[in-house]
Structures are given as structure tokens and as C-alpha cells.
């Protein structure tokens, strides 16, 4: 069936099977492979995207459900090709990623979180992060990066 969805400000129209997961739609139909798939059961958070501005798991929605909605992925964050936005820059500055697989989901979760809570405490950052699993970093540098981005007014 036909689905029309806006991804990173661009309107897309595709013919899809109803069962196509939004994560697969973004990655393999639209070609936005920055959204990663880590569990396909809604726990790891690697596929977190913004759904009408709110963080959501792309693996727990069918593409057809996104009909008429506004989806944002990690590819939308950088202000221009080759650049980083303030949150991304804080991640590099703090060594907040190692393998980088969970990173896009964390960036999207934190983008929504900082929009709602621009000056969070460490405890609040850790709570907000707790729905995204990272296996490499032990989270400490991620927490540092989010606090740094907040301090810089990201």
C-alpha cells in the first residue's frame, strides 16, 4: 500500500507492504542507513528517531503508521555537509562514542531531551539515557557530552 511520510523535511511516497518496519523503510527504502537496528524488539534504542518531534523506536512501528507524520533521523542533525551540530561536536569532544553503533539513537533521544530540558543535571541525563543501551563506553563520556552540550547551549 501507499505511504507518504516526511523524513528530514523531505516528502517521500512509496509503495510498501504493511508489515515493513519503519526502521527498514528508513534504511532500505529511503537509504538513510544512519538509523541503526540493534534488537527489533524495542529495548536497545539504536533505532530511535523523532516522530513528530518525540523520540520513538523505529523498529516498533510499521512504515504505514508513519503516514502523514514527520520523521527525523540522525542525518538531519548536522547543519551542513561535513559539519557537526553542537551535540555531535560535544560527543566528539568528550569521546562519547566508540563503535558508534548506538550513537545515532542516543543523539536523537538526547536531541529531544535537551529540547525539553536544556539544563539537565547528571542524574536527569542518566535517566533520559537509560532507554538507550551502549555496550562500549560505560556511558560516562556520553553523560559528559550531553552535559557539555547543555553547557554550550546546544
Amino acid at each position: 500500500m501507499k505511504v507518504r511520510v516526511t523524513v528530514n523535511g523531505v516528502a517521500h511516497e512509496r509503495e510498501v507492504e504493511p508489515r515493513l518496519l519503519l526502521s527498514d523503510f528508513l534504511r532500505h527504502e529511503i537509504g538513510l542507513t544512519g538509523t541503526h537496528v540493534g534488537c527489533e524488539h524495542g529495548v536497545c534504542g539504536a533505532c530511535t528517531i523523532l516522530w513528530d518531534g518525540e523520540p520513538a523506536r523505529a523498529c516498533l512501528a510499521f512504515a504505514v503508521q508513519a503516514e502523514g507524520h514527520d520523521i527525523r533521523t540522525v542525518e538531519s542533525l548536522a547543519p551542513a555537509p561535513g559539519q557537526l551540530n553542537a551535540l555531535q561536536q560535544a560527543f566528539q569532544d568528550s569521546h562519547a562514542l566508540q563503535c558508534g553503533y548506538c550513537t545515532p539513537g542516543i543523539l536523537m533521544t538526547m536531541t529531544a531531551f535537551l529540547a525539553e530540558n536544556p539544563k539537565p543535571s547528571e542524574e536527569e541525563v542518566r535517566h533520559a539515557l537509560s532507554g538507550n543501551l551502549c555496550r562500549c563506553t560505560g556511558y560516562q563520556h556520553i553523560v559528559d557530552a550531553v552535559l557539555l552540550a547543555a553547557e554550550r547551549g546546544a
Binding site: 566528539q92 553503533y101 545515532p104
Partner: peptide
């Protein structure tokens, strides 16, 4: 020093195996 590999990972540009089409 901060890492050379980070910018591409942070922008979602880095190639992982499932990204190969």
C-alpha cells in the same frame, strides 16, 4: 586527542555491514 573516526559516525555516514546495498 579526539578521534578521527567520530564525525562520520556522528553524522550517520559511516558504513556498517548492514548498510551495504
Amino acid at each position: 586527542l579526539t578521534r578521527n573516526e567520530d564525525p562520520r559516525l556522528l553524522r550517520g555516514e559511516a558504513l556498517f555491514v548492514d548498510d551495504v546495498e
